[in-house]
Design a protein around this nucleic acid. Structure first.
Lengths: 136, 136
DNA sequence: CTCCGTGCAAAAAATTTGCAACTCA
DNA sequence: TGAGTTGCAAATTTTTTGCACGGAG
C-alpha cells in the first residue's frame, strides 16, 4: 500500500503537507531515529517546504489516530514519532549517547500477554523502553 | 530508613515542603495511583499547606535524581511520580478506566538483560508499560 | 459552492528560572 | 550566620485552538 493510499484510507486527503511529512518520516524508517514535531518542521523548512508547525502537529495527530505513525514518550518533555511498522518492537535507549536500538522478543510478548490475561485484560498496545549504557 | 534520612542522605535539607510532598506520595504507595506535580500541589493546598507549584516541581526533580521517587511518562502531556520501591515493577494501564496495575516478572527482565548484553550494553533502567482493556 | 485543510497568531498546558525573602543546620 | 530553600512572577517549551483564506471536486 502506497503512502497516498494509507492516507486516503484513513479518510484524509492526500495533500502536499501530509505527503511531505510522511516523506520526512519515511527517511528515518531504517535509521532507528525518532523525530519530534519540531524536528519534522525544521526539516521541511530546510528543504524549502513551508509547512506550519501547527499543521505538523495536526497531521501527526491524525496519522497517529489512523495508525500510520506511532507516538513515543520516551522521557524528555516532548513526543517523538516513527512510521508504524508491521512488527511491533521495543526500544533500547543509550543514556549516554541517546542512540536508539529497536528489538523484538516473542517470549517477552508472550509473557506479557499471559500476565494481562491473568488479570482479565487483553493488550492493546505495548511500550517497553530499556535505558542502557555501554558495558565498561 | 526514615523519609527524613533518605532526604538528608541525598544531600538535601529535611525542610517542611519536602516532608509534606513525601507524605502525599507515601499515601499512594499501596494504591498504585500515580500523581502528577499538579496533583500533589492541589492535595497540599487542600490540606491547608501552602507550597508553591514551582517548589513541587523542583523537589520532585531533586527526589528523582536522588532515586527517592520515580518519574513515569505514560502518555498524557505530563509526568507522574511514585515513591521508588525496592522491587522494580512494570505497569499495565487500562485504556478505558486509566487504572494502573503493577506487576513484576523476572523472566522478562532476564530476557531484557540478555538482549542488552548481546548488544554490548547493560541496563540502567527499565520502563515497560502495557496498555490493556478488559477482555469482553 | 461547499468542505476540508492550511497558515498564522493567540491560547493552553507543563515545566523551568530569576530573584528577594526566609529557614534550617 | 549563611548556604540551601522557598514562593511568586515571569519566562520557556510543547502542543492545541480559533479563524479567515485557499484549493479540490
Amino acid at each position: 500500500m502506497s503512502t497516498q493510499d494509507a492516507v486516503k484510507k484513513a479518510g484524509l486527503k492526500a495533500t502536499l503537507p501530509r505527503m511531505l511529512i510522511l516523506e520526512v518520516l519515511a527517511k528515518t524508517i531504517d535509521s532507528e531515529v525518532h523525530l519530534s514535531a519540531e524536528d519534522i518542521y525544521k526539516d521541511l523548512l530546510t528543504s524549502g517546504d513551508d509547512v506550519g508547525l501547527a499543521t505538523v502537529y495536526r497531521v501527526l495527530s491524525q496519522f497517529e489516530s489512523a495508525g500510520i505513525v506511532t507516538r513515543h514518550n520516551f522521557e524528555e518533555g516532548h513526543s517523538v514519532y516513527e512510521m508504524t511498522q508491521d512488527h511491533h518492537h521495543d526500544h533500547m535507549v543509550c543514556v549516554d549517547t541517546g542512540k536508539t536500538i529497536e528489538f523484538h522478543d516473542p517470549e517477552i510478548e508472550k509473557k506479557q500477554d499471559d500476565i494481562a490475561a491473568s488479570h482479565g485484560y487483553e493488550i492493546v498496545d505495548r511500550s517497553s523502553v530499556i535505558f542502557v549504557k555501554k558495558t565498561d
